[in-house]
Computed example of a mutant assay.
Amino acid sequence: MSDAQTWTVIGVLGAAFLGTLTIVSTLFVHIVRSEVRRLEGTFGARFDAMDRDIQALMRHTFGIDRGE
């Protein structure tokens, strides 16, 4: 291989590597964001349920309505 062919191969492989790295990092960020959104929804629902339980206990035990 001549010098020009060697540098062409190096350039093509470098571009392919950077392209692959970009795609993988973009997909990784997308997956992490979707998992965080899913966890926020799960914990939000659990906290809402817990808040309803606390309000029921307050009404039952002390006759206090914390105002919904």
Rank of each mutant, 00 (worst) to 15 (best):
S2R: 11
T42L: 14
V36W: 02
D51G: 10
A16Y: 00
H60K: 07
L21T: 10
D48C: 01
Q55Y: 00
M58V: 07
D65R: 01
M50S: 05
M1Q: 12
F28P: 01
R66P: 10
R52C: 09
G14I: 01
T26S: 04
A4V: 14
V29S: 02
T42V: 14
G19D: 02
V29T: 13
A15Q: 07
L18M: 14
G14N: 04
A56G: 02
T26H: 02
L27S: 12
L27D: 09
G44H: 04
D65A: 03
H60D: 14
R37I: 15
L21Y: 13
D65I: 06
G11H: 04
R66N: 13
A16K: 06
T26K: 06
F43H: 05
T6K: 14
D3W: 11
G67R: 06
R66I: 15
V9S: 03
V12F: 05
F62P: 00
V29N: 09
W7R: 07
L18C: 10
A45V: 06
R66G: 04
H60W: 06
D3S: 12
H30V: 10
R46D: 05
I10N: 03
T42K: 14
R38Y: 07
F28A: 10
M50F: 05
T8N: 06
A56Q: 02
F17M: 06
T8C: 08
D3F: 11
G67K: 15
M50N: 07
E68C: 02
D53I: 01
L13C: 03
I64N: 03
M1W: 06
M1G: 15
M50Y: 06
V29P: 00
S2K: 06
A49Y: 09
D48T: 09
E68W: 04
I31H: 07
V36S: 05
R59A: 11
F17D: 02
V24M: 07
D53T: 03
L27K: 03
R59E: 00
L21S: 10
I54Q: 00
G14F: 10
H30I: 15
F62E: 08
F62I: 01
S2G: 15
F43L: 15
A4W: 06
L27V: 11
A49R: 11
R46C: 03
T61Q: 05
T42P: 00
T20Y: 12
A56M: 12
L21F: 14
T6Y: 14
R66Y: 08
S25I: 08
G19W: 08
V29Q: 11
R46I: 02
F17K: 04
T6P: 01
R46K: 13
V12Y: 12
G63Q: 05
G44F: 05
R46V: 04
R59Q: 02
T22H: 01
F47Y: 07
